[in-house]
Write a protein that binds this DNA or RNA. Structure first.
Lengths: 143, 143
DNA sequence: GACTGATTCTTGACTCGGTCCAGAATCGTG
DNA sequence: CACGATTCTGGACCGAGTCAAGAATCAGTC
């Protein structure tokens, strides 16, 4: 526990940002439960801190995303989710029925379908792929 | 004008739904201005009808999407946009700065990166690709 | 052309996810 | 340990979209 928090504290220091109890709690919550929503992370952080404001959670999360510690995923029709697996530009599968999110590696090799055939004069810096379908458990008993 | 409306009315009848002034106005607005938001379409429809409720617009739009007459695009952090180009599963380029949306054909041939390498037991029915970048005009003068 | 049941539209309250703001608390450097 | 900068709290607020009840409109039948 303490060890874990120390590690997170270090990570924050390395990124040149202030270390606060709230940030550590949020970072920890995100590491413990990948693909969580801001709300769920706030709840989890609360279990360690006793209390934390909605704002502190949002602040921490967007800072983490900025610094590349977390990645934000926002499937259409669902609140944003955060994950710790960063830097490999993997993609996601979303269940149309229950909204569950699953990691998936790309079909076409390394840095895949990254460049559109004709990007006009856009400067493209990211290609985001989302697969939509029905997850195994919803195939059996739809929500 | 009338001709256009007749065509839209026919389209609705073909899809087995009631023809109403509101639906025609919304469909028309969507055809006239691709990539519009619900709000913009409501506004455009209002110019032809005088008045239309928010609800009627949302009802019409989601019905159109259901029937395959329109496609809904929801880029993270932006309200939903609707377009009339359906059935070819093309993709989109979104400007990070101003949010403008541009159609783009897929990089890797027909029905492209559609199948993830390992979908577990998910039944995948769609692959959605979104390219993020900066549009030409924002490169010159950022919003 | 009027009648009638089903569908659709209007109005207005409400939800959810997220942001804005001002003042209080906390951090970390000197 | 004191001070300035950063961050956190609490609460109001916002935009996009949904819900619900009653009024209006549609389309098939006489």
């Amino acid at each position: 526990m303490l060890v874990v928090d120390e590690r997170h504290a270090l990570l924050l220091r390395e990124h040149g940002v202030q270390v606060t109890a709230q940030r550590i709690a949020v970072l920890r919550a995100a590491a413990d439960a990948p693909h969580s929503t801001a709300d769920a992370l706030a709840e989890a952080a609360r279990e360690h801190l006793g209390a934390i404001s909605k704002q502190a959670v949002y602040d921490a999360l967007s800072m983490f995303v900025d610094k590349g510690l977390l990645r934000r995923i926002e499937p259409a029709g669902h609140p944003a989710h955060y994950e710790t697996r960063v830097g490999d530009n993997h993609h996601h599968l979303v269940c149309r029925s229950c909204g569950v999110l699953v990691d998936v590696d790309c079909a076409t090799g390394e840095t895949p379908c990254l460049i559109p055939v004709d990007s006009g004069d856009f400067i493209v810096d990211e290609a985001e792929v989302t697969y939509w379908g029905i997850c195994p458990s919803c195939q059996v008993s739809p929500v």
